[in-house]
């Protein structure tokens, strides 16, 4: 069997991987902002909830989280289809790390900026959305880029809850053909190509939040 014969199956798997990754990044970004903002601005109760969320999802194994949501949760009566489970767990995982990025960037906004906002009589929410976040988001972008690529690579774990993603497809073909070398080489290249596309997309977003001339120097790290 010629290696080009693997491509249609791998392509199908790659499509599933892309779907899951992009959906997880989108949902994860929302979670990251919600919980990150809660950490900084939420007051004692909300920030403790956000702290628990980030620590649970950062402090436990992603694979076990997947198994828990896929095998254990249905036993208490809540079940989703595998794809939804995969997206939710990956998103929650990315959201946990993302919330820390958001928290860090928000707390790095200088007090001078906050004092200027106060002197102009901005409300707390106006200060957050008009002064802090637009500056913090520039600081977040490099870390968010890493997290997006990390999410792509971690998405291969969803093959273990029976989702036919790229890794799953590679495993299936290998089980039939035993041609490990070419299959895994092609698979690695596929992941690499996808992460390249992600990196370019992140650069574009980064340029947008930098607003051209506003932040000419690299942000302080």
């Amino acid at each position: 069997m010629d290696w080009t014969a693997y491509l249609p199956m791998l392509w199908q798997g790659a499509f599933v991987t892309m779907t899951i990754t992009l959906a997880s990044i989108a949902v994860g970004a929302v979670l990251a902002f919600v919980f990150g903002i809660m950490r900084v601005e939420g007051g004692p109760i909300l920030s403790t909830i956000a702290l628990c969320y980030t620590e649970v999802f950062r402090g436990t194994s992603l694979l076990v989280q997947l198994f828990w949501f896929y095998y254990a949760l249905p036993l208490v009566g809540l079940s989703f289809d595998p794809i939804t489970t995969g997206i939710l767990v990956l998103a929650a995982h990315a959201g946990g790390y993302g919330a820390e990025i958001v928290r860090g960037a928000l707390s790095s906004v200088s007090t001078q900026q906050l004092e200027a906002a106060r002197a102009l009589n901005f409300s707390r929410l106006q200060t957050l959305f008009r002064v802090s976040l637009p500056q913090a988001i520039v600081e977040m972008m490099p870390a968010f880029g890493n997290l997006a690529i990390e999410t792509l690579k971690l998405s291969s774990l969803v093959s273990l809850i029976s989702i036919a993603d790229l890794t799953f497809a590679a495993q299936s073909i290998r089980n039939i053909t035993l041609d490990s070398t070419s299959i895994y080489s092609i698979t690695l290249l596929c992941y690499f190509a996808m992460s390249l596309v992600l990196m370019v997309a992140i650069r574009v977003v980064e340029r947008l939040v930098r607003r051209g001339q506003a932040f000419p120097q690299m942000p302080r790290s």
């Binding site: 001078q112 900026q113 004092e115 002197a119 102009l120 002064v131 637009p134 607003r211 506003a214 932040f215």
Partner: peptide, 13 residues
């Protein structure tokens, strides 16, 4: 009240 700061504190964005 309004205030002008030593280090300007304009919003960079």
């Amino acid at each position: 009240v309004g205030m002008v700061f030593q280090s300007f504190n304009l919003f960079p964005h």
